[in-house]
Simulated assay, not measured.
Amino acid sequence: MCGRYSLSKSKIELEERFQAEMLPDFNPRYNIAPTQLLPVITSQSPKGFSFFYWGITPEFGRNKPVAQKLINAKAESVHEKVSFKTSFKQRRCLVPADGFYEWKQLGKKTKIPYRFTMRDDELFAFAGIWEEYENINGENHHTFLILTTSPNELVSEVHDRMPVILNREDEKKWLDSYTEEKELLAMLKPYQAEKMLSFTVSPMVNSVKNDSPAIIKRTSPMDQFGNYTLFG
C-alpha cells in the first residue's frame, strides 16, 4: 500500500515541472497522510492544481465517516471493481510527489521507516483516480486515491506493494479521456528500480503530527521507538 508520501519541493518547482498553476500560499509537505487536503491535477483542470482529500468513498457507500474511506486501489483490478471502475474510466488524476514511505517489519515490535525517491531527486506523479462525494452534512467534497501495484526489486525489500509511478511521457495520456483502457492498464506497472533510491529515515515520520524537513533526511536505521538497529 501507500499510506504516506512527501511533496517537499517549492511552488515554483511544482509549476515548472507540471506546467500548472499552484496556489500562492502553498507550503512544502514532508509527511503527507490520508484525509488531508492535497494537490492533484485532473483532466478537467490540467493547467492548475486542484486540492482534494486523500481517501475516496465508493459510489455505493456515501456518507461514511473519514475513517472508513479507502486510500489505495489495486491497479490489477481497478477497471473491474464496482467501486472504482467509473472513476478509472472518467476521473483520473496525477498526484505529484517527490518521495514515499514504507515500513520494513523486523520482528513483532520493530518497524524501520524507509523513504523512496528518484535518483535525481526530481518530482514525479502517482497514478490516481478521484470522485465527488456527499458527507453527512450534505456537503460535496472531492477525494482521490492512489493506485498500487506489485513492487519493483528495490521496494520489495521493504514491502509487497508500491504506488504506481507514471513515466513522464505517460502523464498526459493518463489524463486524456480518449486514451483506451488497454493503454491505461499498460501504464500501471512497477517503476524502474534502477531509477530510484531508498534509505532509512527518522521514526518521527510515524506520527502525522510531524511535518518538517528533518523527516526526509537520511538517518541511521531506528525502530519505531527510536532505538538504533543493526538492520538497514
Rank of each mutant, 00 (worst) to 15 (best):
G55A: 12
A75E: 00
S87K: 00
Y101W: 03
F126S: 10
N227H: 13
S8K: 07
E76P: 04
G99E: 11
G107S: 09
K182S: 13
S207L: 11
I136E: 15
P65M: 12
V158A: 04
F231N: 08
N210F: 14
N227L: 15
M196S: 10
T200P: 08
Y114L: 14
A97S: 14
V164Q: 08
G232K: 10
A97Q: 05
F126D: 12
I165R: 06
M196N: 09
D98R: 00
S8I: 13
V205C: 07
E157F: 10
S198D: 13
A20M: 00
W130N: 04
F225D: 09
P221G: 09
M162V: 00
A214D: 15
Y101G: 01
I216F: 10
A214E: 15
E139K: 01
A193F: 13
A214H: 06
L70Y: 06
F52Y: 12
K172M: 14
T35C: 05
D170Q: 12
Y228H: 09
D176V: 04
E131C: 07
H79P: 02
L94G: 04
K111W: 12
G55M: 11
T110V: 13
R17A: 14
P151Q: 08
Q224W: 15
I216K: 04
I136K: 08
M187G: 06
L23S: 13
S83W: 08
M187E: 10
F51N: 09
E13F: 03
K64H: 08
A186I: 03
I112K: 03
E15G: 09
C93L: 11
M1S: 04
A193G: 08
P221I: 13
C93M: 10
V201S: 07
H141L: 14
P190S: 14
